[in-house]
Design a binder for these strands. Structure first.
Lengths: 199, 199
DNA sequence: AAAATTCTGCACCGATCGGTGCAGAATTCG
DNA sequence: CGAATTCTGCACCGATCGGTGCAGAATTTT
């Protein structure tokens, strides 16, 4: 058995470096983040990056996972709220907050990362589109459960409600990228959920 | 006096070619649209492009202006509606339609074009961010007028209402890029304006 | 000590980028 | 006709891209 592999041990914190990479992708998008940008932010050499994370696309996928567990954790939190309305409120409030975190890029990695790209960024764009669609699916499932529980009226359409909520969140991300503050975005979220269910 | 300049006349329709360029920028973003993509879609040579439009950045600016007069004309139309609520409704309905036009890219040029880019696309990104902010300002001014006319209550905040409406429109653009249909987006718009004013 | 592994850092690869120069044909003026 | 202008198309520029190879030092194991 071997407690640690033979050879010189890794000198950098792989998790901390991944967090730096996440921030770069977040701020500059997949294609806008060059390997030089990434390695400089992560404080490691090109070779170390490839040895530790694979290639740029692999690094991006890992950064997206890191985003889900860090700044994007509000999604999972919101889904645990007791009622559908509270789910929606927590989701939008979390979105407003996560899109305006001090010290981190404004907006949402899932929006900023690769809405439109050239051919080289097609995979990243598809990954993010699927990621956003997945999140919307989670909301829909949660609202379906609410209908089953009587928390939402039986004629409510979970799909439409999920799309409504996610559309606001997407708009919030774009607004944040343009400089809107958390407070301003929270007001938008409040207004969007003034009557419930929305559809 | 000279009715036409000396020399061989231009063989392509500059307006039609600009429309093609607009579609390419719309679908692929500023950086994602290479000169080869553009010239192939426009059906002209590289040299003709530079002679007729300047450089890539100039072409992008002209394409954005073309967008305002074509697919984006719903904004100006909506602003002419008689009441604030009708302005908002027309704006969101037009947004839903313009983001899902058959034969043209899904989404909004102002969103797709350059949310996040590398250094080379910084100018384009700033142009688009300013463009979106400008549109929001137009809404705000229109809502200010509505307050002055008594169409909106005197305690209504035109700035907040404009931001609310624009956030929905931004979210609609992202949704459309992900494949949402016009009908689905219209339902979102309906829900967002169910109670009025929203804030 | 010897082997194994990872480190840093630089040079280099082929590909693509935006943009330009040049040659030769085409067309319209005086 | 000759001058002027724009056309097409290809080759080329320097820069940057993602990714790799290599050399030599460092640090761990057996």
């Amino acid at each position: 058995m071997c407690t640690s592999p033979i050879g010189r041990p890794r000198e950098f914190d792989a998790e901390a470096a991944l967090e730096k990479a996440m921030a770069v992708f977040w701020a500059q998008g997949y294609e806008g983040a060059s390997l030089t940008d990434l390695t400089e932010a992560m404080g490691i050499s090109r070779k170390s990056l490839y040895a530790a994370y694979g290639n740029k696309e692999d690094l991006f996928r890992k950064a997206l996972q890191r985003y889900e567990l860090g700044p994007g954790a509000y999604v999972a939190d919101a889904l645990r709220a007791p009622t559908a309305r509270e789910v929606a409120m927590a989701f939008l409030a979390g979105s407003a907050r996560a899109n305006t975190l001090p010290g981190l890029p404004a907006g949402c990695l899932g929006v900023q990362g690769a809405l439109a790209t050239g051919e080289t960024g097609r995979v990243a764009r598809d990954v993010l589109a699927a990621w956003r669609a997945g999140g919307q699916g989670l909301l829909r499932d949660r609202f379906r459960q609410a209908v089953a529980e009587g928390d939402l009226p039986s004629d409510a359409d979970p799909e439409k409600i999920a799309r409504y909520v996610m559309t606001i969140a997407n708009g919030v991300a774009v607004q944040a990228a343009g400089g809107a503050t958390c407070e301003e975005l929270q007001q938008v979220a409040d207004a969007a959920l003034r009557n419930w269910p929305p559809a």
